[in-house]
Nucleic acid binder design. Structure first.
Lengths: 343, 343
DNA sequence: TTGTACGCGTTATCAT
DNA sequence: ATGATAACGCGTACAA
């Protein structure tokens, strides 16, 4: 079942392999008639060039890769669409590469860069805590998009696009406080986690402090590690525990919309209502936060703009127009029906 | 910035390339000490083998690919996890390849098969209407999982795993009828669409007929083509139109949970309630159908089992234990709070 | 146990 | 306009 190669085609056409290659790749130096003749034979024999061989030989290729940690996260959906459209518009091709939770995204990137002769890379999601040494192994430009960064990084070493998680987080907790809430529970990432969860937790602390609300450790609930992080199920389980603990509170801040939905479900099951008994807020602005009942008050991230800017920066990097860039987008506090003002 | 190759490593170590290759690939014929020495040099110089070269040279490789049409569909999430686990367990590696809505999945598969020397392929989602001739270009085993098939296919030409969409669809509409509903609207795929939408529509028609309910064309609503198919937004927009049309009905059957949620939202916005004013049912059994308020009555597909069986069949195919297989799983009618009995 | 040399399928270089 | 041939980086007979 040996696969048919370019040589076979060349023989069948009675031409050299070079000519066949020219036909395939739309090279100029070939007559129209031999080209159509060759293409015909190719079609008839279902010849498909071997990509490994092409990539091996090619020195450059107009392709970029987007590495996603947590590809099942609906948050990325609208971004993927933008990446697709924008790369196409620039006549680039686009590889979407899933990165496993346990995998090291940089290692994957390094490998992929060599394999596919990438022109640029976008990292999406996850947390970033890699040594500069490791980053330096990437020889092509890259952009970190919607990624929580460890602070000790030198801003000159990379590019990034995201919202200011601390600030936006502050914003929504501040809103809750202004609505009269003082006992606000939070569902966030475990404390040893260097992630957006941590940043959003920081915003929570700041807002409480600003409003002179005493911090209550028992209102801080961390996602369970044995369940998908940031998932509805996680929010559900954690909230059930919170409810059963008997600790008093009037509002829950879940650091993602999915968690918030899980929280609502737990509240409903306990016979209570949202927002009459408890206010619930989320973060991200997923579609479902609008469709849920009640619709969820949240911080909406401008995902399309973020993706757009990510691509723009990446191509500016590729075209050497810049050496690095950092862009922060504001989130939008979307007030909906999952929160109510306390008397 | 020329990348470092296996030759460079060989030179630096003062050995031949073969030895380096052996060290990398854990070959037996190499002394422990030279191996560790070589690995050390590799680490120090951040050498990463070029995958294109490897794939080109290798005649076989223990890897399978899963091609997903509509990777943003949360329905696939739990399946992906199973694929990952099961392939790992069998010491295979696993490539998740997104297929664009407009792309031809078979073409992608053919290319990928050559490029990566695949051992097998799983097709996930979408509709399947490819000629046998095209299918024959695939030289490795493949399984169609949760895919709506055109009926004219010879069952001997392929393998498949899924639920019986017509039957399950019948089941849920039958349930609605038994609850006293007779004016049941349906939100489904456009009629020219050869997909699960069509199959589920068939089940709807059968159930109505069985219950002696006259078919009302105006209660058949098709998804809009300018919006993501099977999305919440689509269900939302279509239901708004339905509501505004003034056509009377007591229940909506949306052929996917996402559509159902959009339908609920539209109902809420019109000032009506679910299930008091309208019953709503979905299909698939997504997590969100449980977490939504009200929780959605739906047909739950056994996604884990489907994925499990898909992999099992694929490996049986690879091991030549079988030549083809078809497995149909029953769906589960999950009755929740979005439906009520009519007096 | 180790090294040399060839070939995987393609594209680029350089003739013709 | 076309063709022969040398890489691309790696794995593997085969020889040592």
């Amino acid at each position: 079942m040996a696969s048919i190669t370019i040589k076979d085609i060349a023989k069948m056409c009675g031409v050299g392999v070079t000519t066949v290659s020219r036909a395939i790749n739309n090279h100029p130096d070939i007559s129209e008639e031999t080209k159509t003749m060759i293409m015909k034979v190719i079609k008839e024999n279902h010849y498909v060039p071997n990509n490994s061989a092409r990539n091996l030989k090619r020195s450059v290729s107009k392709t970029i890769a987007v590495l996603i940690k947590g590809i099942t996260n609906p948050f990325f959906n609208p971004m993927i669409q933008v990446f697709e459209r924008e790369t196409q518009r620039r006549k680039y091709s686009f590889i979407l590469q899933r990165v496993d939770e346990k995998q090291d995204e940089i290692e994957v990137a390094i490998e992929l860069e060599k394999e596919k002769r990438l022109k640029g890379i976008v990292f999406l999601g996850g947390y970033f805590s890699h040594s500069k040494e490791k980053l330096d192994q990437l020889t092509v430009p890259f952009v970190l998009s919607t990624i929580g960064m460890a602070e000790e990084f030198d801003l000159n070493d990379y590019s990034s696009v995201s919202v200011d998680d601390v600030k936006e987080s502050y914003k929504i907790v501040d809103y809750l406080c202004n609505e009269g809430h003082r006992k606000i529970a939070i569902i966030t990432a475990p404390m040893d986690d260097v992630s957006i969860g941590k940043l959003r937790y920081e915003g929570y602390r700041k807002a409480l402090k600003h409003h002179g609300i005493e911090f209550n450790e028992r209102l801080v609930r961390c996602m369970r590690e044995d369940i998908d992080s940031y998932s509805m199920e996680n929010g559900y389980e954690v909230t059930k525990e919170l409810l059963q603990s008997g600790e008093e509170f009037t509002a829950i801040y879940a650091v993602s919309d999915s968690l918030a939905i899980g929280a609502c479900k737990a509240i409903f099951e306990s016979g209570r209502r949202v927002p009459e008994d408890y206010s619930v807020v989320g973060f991200d602005g997923l579609d479902i936060s609008f469709y849920y009942n009640p619709s969820i008050t949240t911080i909406k991230q401008p995902t399309e703009e973020i993706a757009q800017e990510t691509i723009k920066i990446l191509f500016d990097l590729i075209d050497k127009k810049i050496t690095h860039a950092h862009k922060t987008f504001p989130g939008e506090l979307v007030i909906r029906n999952s929160t109510k003002r306390l008397n």
